[in-house]
Design a protein around this nucleic acid. Sequence first.
RNA 1: GGGCGAUUGGCUCAGUGGUAGAGCGCCUCGUUCACACCGAGGAGGUCGCUGGUUCGAACCCAGUAUCGCCCACCA
Length: 886
Amino acid sequence: MSDLPSRPASPTTASAGRQVPDKVSLEGLEVRWDAAWTAQDLYAFDRTRTREQVYSIDTPPPTVSGSLHVGHVFSYTHTDVVARYRRMTGAEVFYPMGWDDNGLPTERRVQNYYGVRCDPSLPYDPDFTPPHEGTDGKVIRAADQVPISRRNFVELCERLTVEDERQFEALWRHLGLSVDWSRTYQTISAEARAVAQQAFLRNLARDEAYQAEAPGLWDVTFQTAVAQAELEARDYPGAFHRVAFHGADGPVFIETTRPELLPACVALIAHPDDERYQHLFGTTVTTPLFDVEIPVLAHPAAEPDKGAGIAMCCTFGDLTDVQWWRELQLPTRSVMQRDGRLLRETPDWITTEGGRARYDELAGKTTFSAREAVVAGLRETGDLDGEPTATQRKANFYEKGDKPLEIVTSRQWYLRNGGRDEDLRAALLARGAELDFHPEFMAVRYENWVGGLNGDWLISRQRFFGVPFPVWYALDADGEPDHARPLVPTEDQLPVDPSSDVPAGYTADQRGVPGGFVGDPDIMDTWATSSLTPQIAGGWRTDPDLFARVFPMDLRPQGQDIIRTWLFSTVVRAHLEHGSLPWSDAAISGWILDPDRKKMSKSKGNVVTPMGLLEEHGSDAVRYWAASARLGTDAAFEVGQMKIGRRLAIKVLNASKFALSFGSPDEPRPLDPALVTVPLDRAMLAGLAVVVERATEAYEAYDHTRALELTETFFWTFCDDYLELVKDRAYGAGAETHDVSAETTSARAALTLALDSLLRLLAPVLPFATEEVWSWWREGSVHRASWPTSEPLRAAAGDVPFAVVGAAGGALAALRKVKSEAKVSMRTEILEVTLEVPAAQAAGVQLALDDVRAAGRATGALTLVDVDGDVVTARDAVLGDPVTRG
RNA sequence: GGGCGAUUGGCUCAGUGGUAGAGCGCCUCGUUCACACCGAGGAGGUCGCUGGUUCGAACCCAGUAUCGCCCACCA
């Protein structure tokens, strides 16, 4: 950030017009201050600021049909801490909130809630009333769901998610997120759809988006193509079957876990250098059961030590099959259908009577049943060698699916992402290197992923609810669509739904008729929309003035699990459309682990509801727990840490109340560094100056944990030692009059100066407690106050070192220890004592001796002795009676 | 198979070359005159293991073990 508006000069006194309450409490602060902040529009974004003055955040839009759990509270707190810090440094923070209501979770919830399903072929019904409303936990069967148009479906989605969004907002407000609530967006809104379609049309115009018909991964449950980024490798039980193919010189054994694909077998393949199969290359064998003649071929992708070293290549069992099929130009003999069942009609490449009879038994069967039938057949014919041996294998699954993916051939839309183009891949790797990851090591996940891409980004899905592709196809005289020349709308027509809107030059009655047109039936992958959150939130399409003030953004906060999806896809879109990164920094939060050190599951996380957590411990306490965990580091779900946070917040209230209690309430509280004249007071401020500097450095480096730790450590020393040491002096002899000594004034000024900086330092993490205290004695909000600087503190401290506080605190501790070991009250008077002071502390103890005596109740003879060592110790103490302050 | 992170007192974690730290928990006390959602004092660790560099290693290097994760792995 640069060229920030200059900060207002520090006032030398603070308003004394407000009241410090007699009794302080954390209860109710969240509700009270959220209301006050809303009333003041405290976090409203000022769009007159320039890009240089703005700090913009690409907030992750939570999925509204899911539920928020403690992991969300954790990571969103990290972002808010950054936002609050930046705001205090003078940046105008652009901090919107989005709701992700575009995708399968919402689709399913709408289906169940209203008893409907989306059928894009239906026309819009403006008077539609859903047959059912509300969910009683039951799933409504597809057959009982009323089919409705896509537009009706989207309307129901918007209606349903309003309630979710209200609840989410209530939680975020209670947590204290300093979001500008007038800037929310939804990923299924007309604006978001228009952005997604416009970006796609531009990709299409630049040939970055293209259509292709090719074999690809397919989920048979959802009946949609699936992208590489949505894959999950899972262990899957299987069995090796040793199967005999029939060659001229006898059987050739292969091993397969997928015998049901035998009818789709097109070749046997071994490594070109494999001695065992040299004699077979160039010959043919016939498949067992189906008697299809296939070649034995050599290809380097065959691995001699896998299975029998020779593999059957089917169309298609896995991605290696696709590679062989492509590179060896093998025929396509697919038997797997999109619904996961084998072809119902016997394929024509099976020609023998026996083979066709065998296939009839498999027709229409699922993978599982077909496998059983093929194995039974192989047993019968004696082509199964030995028994199948069980194995655990890794299979690719759609992350939301529960059946292994099949490979089927289909026409799909792709977006170039470097998966098939080395130059683009290199450019995107360079973008990754340009991006500042916090923590840095997260960058390797990006590199791993981009380096390992094996194809372009598949962005079309054969679903119904989502952003439709804004294209139509002309139909020829036979009614065949012309996929090569899609008809597109102009950008000002967006969003369009090609299933109900009509392309230019056509009329509605030409839909689906020869010579007419047809809409593209597919929708976009949800990542194709959410990869555009900076553009959606920043007003790329409709508000270029705003967009210029916020883009490229500063920060993308997100989880490590979606680096390959959300982060990468957003980089791809910005690179293609804007020729830049979408943001300069990415803050990656870790996982929340349950006490078993496992990733906290959603079910477990939901046992403790976030709102319950906030209400039980207080938002500041929960924020403290979250802020105690570094970016990128997994954190334990630890109630103990929240209790520590709560204790800190309470201490802030109480210590502040105390520090503000000195002097007459009518008088302005002194904030003038020049009033601080006593060495101990100066020393304390010297230490605080260092804390301010180091905490600022830590925040600049996205290390909120370090900043908090530094501040917190100082704060406790401030309370336990400094406050105790200056107590008596701060009360002053003339507490009842205005005639106070310079020493008393020094203590009071040091206390208010310290409190002033400490509240600001803690404000990002503890927004409620600090705001509460701020309101007792300052104008405005601490969250719009400027971030503290060390200059006034250094000015007050002069050349007195912080070590004086340590020395005085050490001397006080020695006196306390005497009493603790004698098991008497801390209020007990010390009539006589000798303090052994190491040379390094001698000057400090001497400088603060009056305060040490007062705090330690060492009213009698006190002898100082020089010793070696590094701690002050007390001996030969004579104790009197407990005293009360007189 | 390649890679990233972690390994420090019972627990949760700081600490990147100079005599082991914090909080919680524990033990012993004290206290309601800011704070019982409190205060003071104390006990407790050969920093996963092995070797190396160095005057000196929790920290640097090499190796190794365990845990978590990312990528690859479907014959």
